[in-house]
Design a protein around this nucleic acid. Structure first.
Lengths: 209, 209
DNA sequence: CACTAATTTAAACGCTTGTTTAACCCACGA
DNA sequence: TCGTGGGTTAAACAAGCGTTTAAATTAGTG
């Protein structure tokens, strides 16, 4: 890997370590020493540990939501009656391609997303909803259009079930994959797993009341 | 609440605080002061913080798996061709009734279960699998029998999708419920949500390839 | 080159953490 | 009644934490 500037090196190290161990379990000293920078650099460039965590999320969520937004616009312009499959396909392909293109691991982002929802008493969840809520609402709106006649409360619960299935299983991807490999000798790639997840999530959303 | 012995008071306090904040974010001093016992009591009775965490899980997972085991036996004896719905119904009713009967909150256990899978680098997940794996395998086996013709890898991925949807959404129940209440004014109980989750999970498992 | 602002550095700050120690209390059996 | 052992207690321990300081260094500009 090339040697980026201090800010970039800190973000690179923090991203990996946070995903591996969680936020509170990762100290600034561990981050700065693996990044090869001085301990005080975090507070100098980011202000605090909390703001560093937010910066890590912004660095991958901002391009992700931008890609998703333009992908949704692209799909909507060429087909004004989007199906559930189309929308999930957009979501997953953006998650896979958009994030992996600079050599970073898409699984890592799923893991971070999972942590954001469970750790730090929901601080990160609120930050993400506040910062990226508009794209989320746009996606949810399109998905709801593709499920005519569904009552709103049922729809939103199913949306959360779907998000849960996605975030939980993909953020534990390595652990699950290891178990299946040991039991069945079958290696699973992330692409394969998303190809399994897409129809399952569609069934979850469209299933009978 | 009555005043149980020191061990019980520590477990009661730890259970609530861990579920609220996570394991590393909860200090032994917070636990012992809310329990009204001396700080050193944790190390005296449990040995270490790690062993306290395990004890918290054992106290609710042991009766849970026992209830689930006997419920599965009861169902199997009166109907030897169990459907997916039946099995999920067993799982959810045991989670709901079996745990709530001593006045404790079932949501709390879902939250702890979710934390066990995401925090502490999988230590707890391994502990749970090791300690309660047999009941898990029994349930998985029955579920697979109810899904004839499914290939094993697809089945197990879908099982994890289902677990993800369940654990993730129920462990964030309060947060999700608050959002839906604000947006639609519709209060949701845990029973209601499980009644929504059951058919969605069935669709997820039985859906087309 | 000289001056200034930005960055890096080593060291220390105050605080919290999990754990251990040793004195102490008190019930119970000889 | 004495003594023994399980339980409780206050106090201290060493280690780690995020953050701050002030000096040293580097980079950029007139």
């Amino acid at each position: 890997m090339s040697q980026p500037d201090t800010v970039g090196r800190i973000l690179d190290a923090a991203e990996v370590l946070f995903a591996e161990r969680g936020f509170t379990e990762t100290s600034l000293r561990t981050i700065t020493s693996t990044a090869g920078v001085n301990l005080a650099a975090v507070n100098y460039h980011f202000g605090s540990k909390k703001e560093l965590i937010q910066a890590v999320f912004e660095r991958f969520l901002t391009p992700f939501t931008e890609h998703l937004d333009s992908e949704l616009s692209r799909r909507a312009s060429q087909d004004d009656d989007l199906q559930v499959d189309d929308l999930l396909q957009s979501l997953y392909s953006v998650a896979l391609a958009g994030l992996a293109k600079d050599g970073r691991d898409p699984k890592r982002f799923m893991r971070l997303l999972g942590l954001a929802y469970t750790q730090s008493q929901g601080h990160m969840r609120r930050f993400i909803v506040l910062r990226y809520g508009s794209t989320y609402r746009r996606f949810a709106g399109l998905l709801r259009q593709a499920l005519p006649g569904i009552d709103p409360v049922t729809f939103y619960w199913r949306l959360y079930f779907m998000l849960g299935a996605t975030i939980f299983s993909l953020s534990s991807f390595d652990a699950i994959e290891a178990i299946l490999r040991e039991d069945f000798g079958a290696e699973s790639s992330l692409e394969e797993t998303l190809a399994r997840l897409a129809p399952a999530a569609t069934a979850l959303l469209t299933g009978p009341k």
